[in-house]
Design a protein around this nucleic acid. Sequence first.
DNA 1: TTGTAAGCGTTATCAC
DNA 2: GTGATAACGCTTACAA
Lengths: 340, 340
Amino acid sequence: MPTIKDVAREAGVSIATVSYVLNNKTSFVSEETRRQVLETANRIGYRPNATARNLQANQTRLIGYSWHDVPQNQPMNYVMDTFTYYLAQAAEENGYHVLTFTHPRGKPTPSYHELILTGRVDAFVLAGTVADDARIRFLLDEKYPFISFGRSNPDWDFAWVDTDGTQGVCEATRYLIELGHRRIAMVAWPEESITGNYRLAGYLQATREAGLPVLPEYILRGEHTVESGRSALAQWWALPQDQRPTAMVAVSDQVAIGVMQQAEQLGLAVGQDLSVVGFDDTPVGQFLRPSLTTLQQPIPEICQALMKMLGPVLAGRLPEPRHILLPPRLILRDSCGTVG
Amino acid sequence: MPTIKDVAREAGVSIATVSYVLNNKTSFVSEETRRQVLETANRIGYRPNATARNLQANQTRLIGYSWHDVPQNQPMNYVMDTFTYYLAQAAEENGYHVLTFTHPRGKPTPSYHELILTGRVDAFVLAGTVADDARIRFLLDEKYPFISFGRSNPDWDFAWVDTDGTQGVCEATRYLIELGHRRIAMVAWPEESITGNYRLAGYLQATREAGLPVLPEYILRGEHTVESGRSALAQWWALPQDQRPTAMVAVSDQVAIGVMQQAEQLGLAVGQDLSVVGFDDTPVGQFLRPSLTTLQQPIPEICQALMKMLGPVLAGRLPEPRHILLPPRLILRDSCGTVG
DNA sequence: TTGTAAGCGTTATCAC
DNA sequence: GTGATAACGCTTACAA
């Protein structure tokens, strides 16, 4: 690999001059020298060595992103996978690259600490955040720059972008109401899940604004599994017939699939006897029969927004605005129909 | 961040001594000094700066991995996503990290060239390789280290690991034969697809060894789409009834889904009237009705094998063995049944 | 056994 | 305008 020295020698100037020209601190370099340097650099195929640059600038232009660790075959990590891809793309557009790492499920922070101490990354991107997220607390304490896809403790002040689950589920619920549904239920996540709670809030908002009663038995909570959906529908179907919900919004596609499977088992036609909405627009959705109406997270836009925050965050400031909420898009398919 | 200088000062020794101790070139350092240095380093939380180390060692301990660029919502990139995760994990176990980048679909090599010239990565990992892959040709010409998940031109000599599609499809076809099927068809990929051709070879092998005739009309080719599967079954169903295949192996889950959708449309019960096998074990498979029997690629093992090749490759040698073929695992579900 | 100093490829601060 | 040269944090001859 040619170095700056090679260019200097070939062009018959000093390395300082080469550096000036290449960094466009060109104001006071003569046009002649400038041309000369550029031409030689180009000719011998010179490109500044990133490591040397980084050492001098005390940066890496790398952002660390930690993968979830998931057992193979229990996937449905579609959103995270998509996120990772668009993150890499958005990072590149801003002159960064993503360094991926993994961490044992239990203790994420050692991996973070190691990367910080060895100066491998300039900042981190978090995703899949939870309430009182240990990673966020750690990075906040370390005062290490990071941006987050997802919220956590509302008292902690950090830069985040998130999908507006409230808004999304609210829109989905309104859609069901428009279709004539009056008895609408929701399968939510456990109370600890902030993401789940934001989505639930959308359901409550739409229900209330339509003047529908909010029945506690219409709100069931369960894990992010197919089983949660199955058992929710089973419970609702144990109600007297005139109290059974005619539509249900699921906190995720995974759960929605469970509802649909149980419906099949009960001999119910989803889209007619029962309407179902999911969340995430997992690829599965389009292949189910009927195909699943769902909410699609605006992942590309989220990544763009995150990267826009990176500058201020690296400068030790909070970006303006410090939080961005992006609405998901309701994807209409065949799992919802008019009531009756 | 504490530097080696800080440790040296605190411990009352020179930076060289600190370096010796920390790199275990400790043979000639007195036990006393050694203890002292270790203790101070530990106390002030010193960790060697990766960039400085890299500059000196002329390496980065980073391997570059380029994401496919896929439009959102036309996904089914499950295999690649899984691969990326396990690659990151395997890399870490070997002291490396993965740097992800993306490239415009048309011209991948500029991105590679840039990363090489700026010395950002020590090697590349390729995936989703095709016949006469331009990236492989480029890296071969540049003599830049890389390892590949997937084969390409057989005349090119490079280190690769791949799923043994031939073996996998052969096993699947034998399974169908065991179930009593005699008229077995295959939806393959276009002739340019080496991966598709290896899978097809497995079908041919099993068919021949069972003494079944290989009918040209039983081999249909199409793109990696649902539509391919649909149209294949439609064509087969246009045959006289006694010539219609009773089972079919699809080159991918995506195609298998198409077959199943078309079967539904034709009023056929998959698993009874018709047996279907897919390839990839996409998450969708388990949620389809009936669930899809398919071949699962051994992604974790592939990543392990690739990383084992990295050492020799970085040293400019070819690993021993230079190719590894790993068999996929047949996942039995409900889409196949006995004939009749 | 330990310290001094050169060098990795840059950028940036000075003189000239 | 341009060129020495120090500095970034580390490793490693070589000298002491």
